[in-house]
Computed example of a mutant assay.
Amino acid sequence: LSPEGEKKQVVAANVDQAAVVSALRKPEPYPPLLDRILAGAAAEEIRPVLVFNKLDLDRKGSARKWEEIYAPAGFPILFTSVPQKTGLEELKALLRDKTTVFAGPSGAGKSSLLNAIQPGLRLKTGEVGRKGVHPGRHTTSSAVLLKLSFGGYVVDTPGVRTFTTWGIQRRELARLFPEFEPYLGKCAFHDCSHTHEPGCALRDALEQGRIPPTRYRSYCSILDELPE
């Protein structure tokens, strides 16, 4: 149970990696949710792979912005489009001979991607924006283990609207953000929370543009939720 008494749902166990899928448009990536999933994966020592889908809708070129935010953390990043068949072979290579959990918000196109790389699955999909289909509508209602013909397994999960980081200790959180690592242990105070203390090396890096502001805001938001 969470501190508020909410039931914890275990989506998958014994997986090699997590493919964290977001759409570049309809809906756009939501960093607070994305960063919570990434921190949760890191806490469980699960390798995350960032998949930004619907590249064909990215007419403003936002893909580069997201790459600039997450590449410094060392996350593998893949841009995909089912209509254009972009990145599908690369996605298959990432999944081959591994057990991967597919996670991300509703409407990101997880089921569409799986249908594209594994013909015959016939997973239910929703087309965002058409009459009768609401943005972010769930098309997968429960976690399903799928065997891939080219090797490996995928756990297709329901769309995530909220993600609570159970079990993470406050003192451990900063290390779950890989791009923070060069600045940890260099603050004036050994127990620095990196939120308000003077002489904080992490906040100095933020002010110098070496830490993405969205990632730092996510860190502070998660930290506020963790018990003292």
Rank of each mutant, 00 (worst) to 15 (best):
Leu145Thr: 11
Lys7Asp: 15
Pro72Met: 09
Ala18Thr: 08
Gln118Cys: 08
Pro119Phe: 05
Ser62Asn: 12
Gly120Ser: 05
Glu28Asn: 12
Ala12Pro: 04
Thr165Asp: 00
Val82Glu: 06
Glu181Ser: 12
Ile211Met: 06
Thr139His: 05
Ala12His: 02
Gly159Glu: 04
Gly5Glu: 10
Glu45His: 12
Pro48Ser: 14
Asn53Val: 10
Val144Trp: 06
Leu94Tyr: 10
Gly87Thr: 03
Ile46Asp: 02
Leu95Pro: 03
Thr140Leu: 05
Gly126Pro: 02
Gly61Val: 06
Phe189Tyr: 13
Val51Ile: 15
Phe180Thr: 07
Ala205Lys: 02
Gly199Gln: 04
Ser193Arg: 14
Ile77Met: 11
Gln84Tyr: 08
Leu94Cys: 08
Val10Ile: 15
Thr99Val: 11
His134Glu: 14
Val144Phe: 01
Thr195Gln: 10
Glu197Lys: 07
Glu90Gln: 14
Glu4Thr: 15
Ser111Phe: 06
Asp58Met: 09
Ile77Ala: 02
Val133Met: 11
Ile117Glu: 00
Lys85Val: 03
Leu123Gln: 13
Val21Thr: 07
Phe75Leu: 13
Asp35Tyr: 01
Lys8Gln: 15
Ile37Glu: 02
Asp35Lys: 04
Asn14Ser: 14
Ile117Asp: 03
Ser221Cys: 04
Lys7Met: 13
His196Asp: 07
Glu197Ala: 00
Pro135Gln: 12
His134Val: 11
Val49Pro: 04
Gly87Glu: 05
Asp56Ile: 05
Tyr183Pro: 03
Leu50Phe: 03
Leu50Met: 06
Phe79Gln: 06
Thr86Cys: 11
Phe150His: 12
Tyr153Lys: 13
Ala93Arg: 15
Leu121Phe: 04
Leu1Gln: 13
Asp97Ser: 11
Thr162Ser: 12
Glu45Ala: 13
Pro182Gly: 06
Gly126Phe: 05
Ala174Phe: 08
Phe75Gln: 04
Ser193Tyr: 03
Leu38Phe: 03
Thr214His: 02
Asp56Leu: 07
Gly109Leu: 05
Ala205Gly: 01
Gly74Trp: 12
Ala41Cys: 15
Glu4Trp: 08
Phe189Pro: 01
Glu68Trp: 05
Tyr70Asp: 05
Glu68Val: 04
Lys186Cys: 01
Asp35Glu: 14
Arg161Met: 08
Gln169Glu: 15
Leu33Ser: 01
Asp58Arg: 07
Gly104Leu: 08
Val144Asp: 02
Lys85Pro: 04
Glu207Asn: 06
Leu173Asn: 03
Cys200Val: 05
Leu148Ala: 07
Lys98Met: 07
Leu33Ile: 01
Arg47Leu: 09
Cys192Ile: 02
Thr195Ile: 07
Lys110Val: 02
Ser221Lys: 08
Leu148Pro: 05
Ile222Ala: 06
Leu78Asn: 09
Gly185Phe: 08
Lys92Ile: 11
Ile222Glu: 00
Thr99Met: 09
Pro29Met: 10
Gln208Pro: 02
Val128Asn: 10
Asp97Asn: 15
Thr157Trp: 02
Trp66Asn: 00
Gly129Met: 10
Thr86Leu: 15
Glu28Ile: 10
Glu127Ser: 12
His138Trp: 01
Lys65Ser: 02
Phe52Lys: 02
Val21Glu: 02
Pro83Thr: 10
Glu172His: 13
Arg64His: 09
Gly87Tyr: 08
Ala73Lys: 00
